[in-house]
Amino acid sequence: MREKILSVLEKNARISVHDLAILLGEDEVEVANCIGDMEAENVICGYHTLINWDGTSEEKVTALIEVKVTPQRGMGFDKIAERIYQYSEVHAVYLMSGAFDFTVIIEGKTMRGVAQFVSDKLAPMDEVLSTATHFVLKKYKDHGTILVSKPHDERMLVTP
């Protein structure tokens, strides 16, 4: 049941427990309990809204930064990641396979702000060997949702 609940909530966090129970053909109380458990266990970590900021007057820039580090004895990658993800500007941190170690996604108000974060905070860290910053120019699709166009129902209104 957990996976089924999550697959619905992932796409629509605002659905009521009542409707969710109907969709899944499960008991409402059980669904509520299950969601409660998953919140407690940090399986469900929050309920966010997917926003296409390009459609607002708010200025925002997103940058994807490739970070190479040297893991220190006794503190591995996790400790370094922690030092990075504590910053509120940091939107996401992933440990990567391949040519670099971390992908760090930063959201800021201006390019300069992001650049400053990289040069003042990220790059000077002892463990960080190098960074490569890529600014996002346009978001086409995010969280499985296409941002640039709204689907339009082109079917005929009544068909057999």
Binding site: D153, M156, L157, V158, T159
Partner: peptide
Amino acid sequence: PSGIRKFFDIVSEMKDAISLGVGEPD
């Protein structure tokens, strides 16, 4: 003539109607 056709003609006259009359996947 198909009974659906007749109904289709009425529906298509109507603006901003919501249809639950389609026999194909969305």
